[in-house]
Design a protein around this nucleic acid. Sequence first.
DNA 1: CTGAAAGCGCTAACAA
DNA 2: TTGTTAGCGCTTTCAG
Lengths: 334, 334
Amino acid sequence: MSNLEQIAKLSGFSKATVSRVLNKSRHVSPDTRAKILQVIQEMDYVPNRNAISLSKGKTLQIGMITTVMTEIILPFMTSFVEVAAEHGFQTIIYTSDSDQERELQAFEDLKQKRVDGLLIITCVNELSVVSSYGKYGPIVSWQRMDRPDIPSVAMDQYDGYALAIEHLLSQGITRIANAFGRPSSLNTRRRIQAYEDSMNKHQLEIRKDWYFDAVYHLEHGQDVVRRLLGIPSDLHSEDGLPGKNLPQAIVCANDYVAAGVLSEARRHGWNVPGELRIVSFDNMQIAQTLGITSVQNPIRDQAYNAFALLSPSLLNRQLPLKPLDFSLAVRETT
Amino acid sequence: MSNLEQIAKLSGFSKATVSRVLNKSRHVSPDTRAKILQVIQEMDYVPNRNAISLSKGKTLQIGMITTVMTEIILPFMTSFVEVAAEHGFQTIIYTSDSDQERELQAFEDLKQKRVDGLLIITCVNELSVVSSYGKYGPIVSWQRMDRPDIPSVAMDQYDGYALAIEHLLSQGITRIANAFGRPSSLNTRRRIQAYEDSMNKHQLEIRKDWYFDAVYHLEHGQDVVRRLLGIPSDLHSEDGLPGKNLPQAIVCANDYVAAGVLSEARRHGWNVPGELRIVSFDNMQIAQTLGITSVQNPIRDQAYNAFALLSPSLLNRQLPLKPLDFSLAVRETT
DNA sequence: CTGAAAGCGCTAACAA
DNA sequence: TTGTTAGCGCTTTCAG
């Protein structure tokens, strides 16, 4: 492999001038530039990036921390990788598998200048630990960080949930069940708040007996339907619907849950959307496929903002932040 | 930030000795080591990895090339990141979005010594281009590379398909439909071959009229069922099944297709597995969730082998390759 | 067991 | 416009 010095020698100029050509400095005469480029070409020379990194003290690499790679975070990861690449930054994956020690490697790498910044998707170390690394480089989080010193692009779920509820109310739906995710998480608390506020505002009854907790997966969604219909979970009854009081809609924590709700409802002859409407969150591929109305958080904009929050350190200028708004993809289930 | 020189000064030893301590060389007296470690601790010193990389000419980083991150490749990515991490290597994502230029960046980074090796998941550049970068470092591929100079961990789909077919035959199923993926791809050709060989071996009829092509997604699976039942695709007929000649089983290109087949079959009263058995490929989460029998390729082992194929250059020793075998996760649909 | 010194390959003042 | 010369921070002979 050839290096700068060889190019300098062969072209008859100094290393500095070659470096200038490489860095597109404009203080080089066209002639010189041409000659040097010629030699570079001939020698199939490429600069060594480690040397550049060492010399500049920057690596143009960003670490991305997550416990595990799941399809949930895929769109976010993809978008971030892309926006980073547009600005010349590469992305390194750190999966911790929920192991604090393993995760710490990422933070150490920030300290060791292997990465110029860190993006937390999910994090298992103490927030105090995380923020103690703040002095070594910029850190931003997707996951909500209840600490002011770690900026986050997490959104207030209140707004998204209100959007879903108001959509249903505007259709004359008033009996609404809710399938929430992790109990007592801030996200869930905000969603509950949104539901209750909306119902109160319209002077409608809040049905706490239709709150379901810890509903994460497709099967959980099926379960919710069975519980509402009073069907034992190990039996696939094909009986008609009980005539009793049922919700007119179920708002689901995510699209998979909604998929479970949808399939199980149909299996038991519960007509969607005629008798039951379904709204879910995340608007992933499956929601589109199955025609489920879903609340969408602006993932690409969040990813962009994550980079923008890192930009002051990385690029020495603040990229403008995009406003983050939920939107509703209305489909057949409502 | 402190550096080696400062540690050397403060501890009263030379940079070389400090370096030895750092690299766990055994030619250091315990006393010296203790003193130096003490200073390192006090100064909160960490070595600069760029300097190490430059000096050693290695980065301990591997680039992973893919057109787009999808859930299909997620388990493979995850496994690779993990096995690489176990050996001290980090993984950088290069998504090309099928742009040859963007993808080339990864290969340039190999040349520029930003990464020590390259893993191709999917690649859009010419194979000749790819292999021209082989001299700069090891390259291995997940995707099949019809070139001997680029090692690959791709598996022969013949074996997996034969596994599925023999499973059905052993259950007395003889009328089998096939939903294939990309027409004329090597994978598809091998799958067809496996089906036809198995049928021939058992002197059973090969039903080419039940070959479906370009079946990739859930909707396509639904489509297959409708076509078999003779139902126009824009109508959701609830009529009984036509009494005519139908397959007893459908082998699907992937789990999503199978999910579509399953839901559509049930919707039309086609009893699974009583009247229709379903086998698919990939054994992803959704297959488990929906209880679909699925052929599993040993993704973790493939990822391990990918690293093992890189290991001679990366570690200066060849990790043993694991044998790669398909297996069958038998569930409710068969 | 320890130290001196020459790299690794590039950048960026500062001069000219 | 171009060259000189220190770095950047660590590794690694080669001596001692």
